[in-house]
Design a protein around this nucleic acid. Structure first.
Length: 434
RNA sequence: UGGGGUGUAGGUCAAUUGGCAGACCGCCCGGCUGUUACCCGGGAAGUUGCAGGUUCGAAUCCUGCCGCCCCAGCCA
C-alpha cells in the first residue's frame, strides 16, 4: 500500500499532535446534529473519528450521514489524546473518503446473539473484538509451537493430506482419485512422521487433519489442526517430558505476550498458573480406581469416558497424564508395555478445568513381528502398510511421538467454552459454510 | 446414533397458561456542538419453524416432520 501511506490505529498514539491518514472500518456512529463521532477499527486497534460540522464544511458533513456500520473509509486529520478517554485516540477529521459503503442491514450488533446465527454470519462475526482476541491467541500459540521446536532443532515436515487408507480407525472422508481408486483425507500424519524420524531424527508436523466422525460435542471438529512430533531414540518417559515442556511453554508464552486479549476474553489467568507445577503422571489402573472411588462405574479394560476424565483432573487441578492404557482401547502402533503386556506404552494428557484430552502420545511398537500381529488382530489391510512395516525391517529404532490438538489447546488457554470459536471457519458435521 | 431442551419481528426475548401478538436493540424520519452500547420524539417491521388435528376460538393443547442447543459415544 505504498501508494496510500497510512497509520495503523495501533500506532496512532505515536503520532499524537500530527496529521495522519488512516484506513479503517466504522463500527458505530454517534451524531449530535452539528458534531459526530465514529468509532473505528482496523484490526490492529481502535480510534474515534470526530467530525465538527462548521469545521469540515457542508459537503463532507453530508457524507458523515453515510457512515453506516462497517463502512470502510480513508480519513485524514489530527491525531490527539482525548482527556475523557485516554485509551482511544481521537482523529479530528479534515478529509473523508468512503472506500466501501455498507448497507444498513449489517446483521451483527453489539448485543447478545445465538450461536447458530453468529456461525451463519461467521465472516462478519470474526470482526468482533472477542473473535479477534481469540484469533490473535491462536496465532500466538502457533508461533510458539514453531519457536519451541525450532529452538530444539526439530525439522518441520509436511505430510500428505490425500492418502490411501492408513492411520486410525475413525471415520474417513473419501474422494475419487484418478485411476488409483479412492483417496482419503488424512486423519493423522503420524505414520509418515515415523518414516521421517528415521530420516531426520526429530521432526514435527503441523497441518490440518480430517475426521468423518459423527461427533457433536464442544471439543470435536471434522477438520482440525494437529501438531505431531516424532522423535527417534525417545522412549515414553522422554516423550512425556517433552509434552510437559511444550505445554508449559505455550501457556507461559500466551500469558506473557497476549494479556490484553486474555482480558478481552475475561480469562481467569490464575487458573493457568498450575502449569508451573510438575504434571501428574497416573497409571491407567490407578486412574480407573480413582474414577470408581468418585462414583464412576468404569471397569478396567474400558477406555475412560469424558466424565471419568473430568473426575480425575478435578482431583489435581493441573494437567494429568494417564499412562499405559489396555491394548484393546488403543491403536495398533503403540508399543507393548514390557512390565504389563496387557497394556501399551502410551499417555493421554488431560487439561484442567474439565477440558479433557489435548494430547495423545505413545512409544511406537518397533518389533516387526509384534506390530504385524497387531495389524492382523485389527484386520487392517496389510498391503496398505507395507512401507510402514519396512520401517521395522530396515533399521528399526526406539521412537515415540504425540499429537497435540491445536483447537483444544487454544480453547483451554483462552478459556473459550466451545472449540468452534477458536478456528476461523469451523467445519462440523452439520456445518460446511461459510 | 441415543437422551434432554428449544423454535414468536433482522437480533434478544415477553405474551395472565386456550381469548385483540408485544418490549428492547437494530433500521427509517425529526431534534440535539464532546458522544462513549449517547440522549429525546415519531414510524415501519410477523404465514408465531412446517404439515395436519382438537376447539366457538390455538403462539399456547395433540400427532408427525424439520432446524438449532446441551450431554453421551468416537477422538485430538
Amino acid at each position: 500500500m505504498s501508494s496510500l501511506p497510512s497509520v495503523r490505529l495501533a500506532d496512532l498514539s505515536a503520532h499524537a499532535g500530527q496529521q495522519v491518514t488512516v484506513h479503517a472500518w466504522v463500527t458505530h456512529l454517534r451524531s449530535s446534529g452539528k458534531i459526530a463521532f465514529a468509532a473505528l477499527r482496523d484490526g490492529s486497534g481502535v480510534a474515534q473519528a470526530v467530525f465538527v460540522k462548521n469545521e469540515v464544511g457542508d459537503e463532507l458533513w453530508a457524507r458523515v450521514a453515510l457512515l453506516t456500520t462497517e463502512t470502510s473509509v480513508r480519513l485524514t486529520g489530527e491525531a490527539r489524546v482525548n482527556p475523557r478517554a485516554p485509551g482511544v485516540l481521537d482523529i479530528g477529521v479534515r478529509a473523508l473518503e468512503i472506500i466501501g459503503p455498507s448497507p444498513t442491514d449489517y446483521p451483527i450488533q453489539p448485543k447478545e446473539h445465538g450461536v447458530d446465527f453468529l456461525l451463519n454470519h461467521r465472516h462478519f462475526w470474526l470482526r468482533a473484538p472477542r473473535q479477534t482476541a481469540i484469533m490473535r491467541i491462536r496465532s500466538e500459540v502457533e508461533q510458539a509451537i514453531h519457536d519451541f521446536f525450532y529452538a530444539r532443532d526439530f525439522v518441520r515436515c509436511d505430510t500428505p493430506i490425500l492418502t490411501a487408507a492408513i492411520g486410525e480407525r475413525a471415520g474417513l472422508f473419501s474422494t475419487e482419485y484418478f485411476d488409483e481408486g479412492t483417496a482419503y483425507l488424512a486423519q493423522t500424519g503420524q505414520l509418515y512422521g515415523e518414516a521421517l524420524a528415521a530420516s531426520l531424527g526429530r521432526i514435527y508436523t503441523f497441518g490440518p487433519t480430517f475426521r468423518a466422525e459423527k461427533s457433536k460435542t464442544r471439543r470435536h471438529l471434522t477438520e482440525f489442526w494437529m501438531i505431531e512430533p516424532e522423535m527417534a531414540w525417545y522412549d515414553q518417559d522422554d516423550n512425556m517430558d517433552l509434552q510437559e515442556e511444550l505445554v508449559r511453554f505455550l501457556v507461559t508464552r500466551v500469558l506473557e505476550r497476549r494479556p490484553a486479549d486474555l482480558a478481552v476474553l475475561e480469562r481467569d489467568t490464575s487458573k493457568l498458573d498450575c502449569v508451573l507445577q510438575p504434571f501428574v503422571r497416573l497409571d491407567y489402573g490407578d486412574a480407573v480406581k480413582l474414577a470408581q472411588s468418585r462414583g464412576s462405574d468404569v471397569q478396567w479394560g474400558e477406555d475412560l469416558g469424558a466424565p471419568d476424565e473430568a473426575l480425575i483432573v478435578a482431583e489435581y487441578e493441573r494437567p494429568v497424564f494417564v499412562m499405559n492404557y489396555p491394548k484393546e482401547a488403543k491403536a495398533f502402533y503403540m508399543k507393548e508395555n514390557p512390565a504389563d503386556p496387557r497394556t501399551v506404552l502410551c499417555s493421554d494428557l488431560l487439561a484442567p478445568e474439565g477440558r479433557g484430552e489435548i494430547i495423545g502420545g505413545s512409544q511406537r511398537e518397533d518389533d516387526y513381528e509384534k506390530i504385524l500381529h497387531r495389524l492382523k488382530e485389527e484386520k487392517l489391510p496389510l498391503e496398505a502398510y507395507d512401507w510402514y512395516l519396512d520401517l521395522r525391517r530396515y533399521g528399526s529404532f526406539v521412537h515415540s511421538g504425540f499429537g497435540l490438538g491445536l483447537e483444544r489447546t487454544v480453547a483451554w488457554i483462552a478459556g473459550v467454552e466451545h472449540i468452534r470459536e477458536v478456528i476461523p471457519f469451523p467445519r462440523m458435521m452439520d456445518r460446511l459454510r461459510p
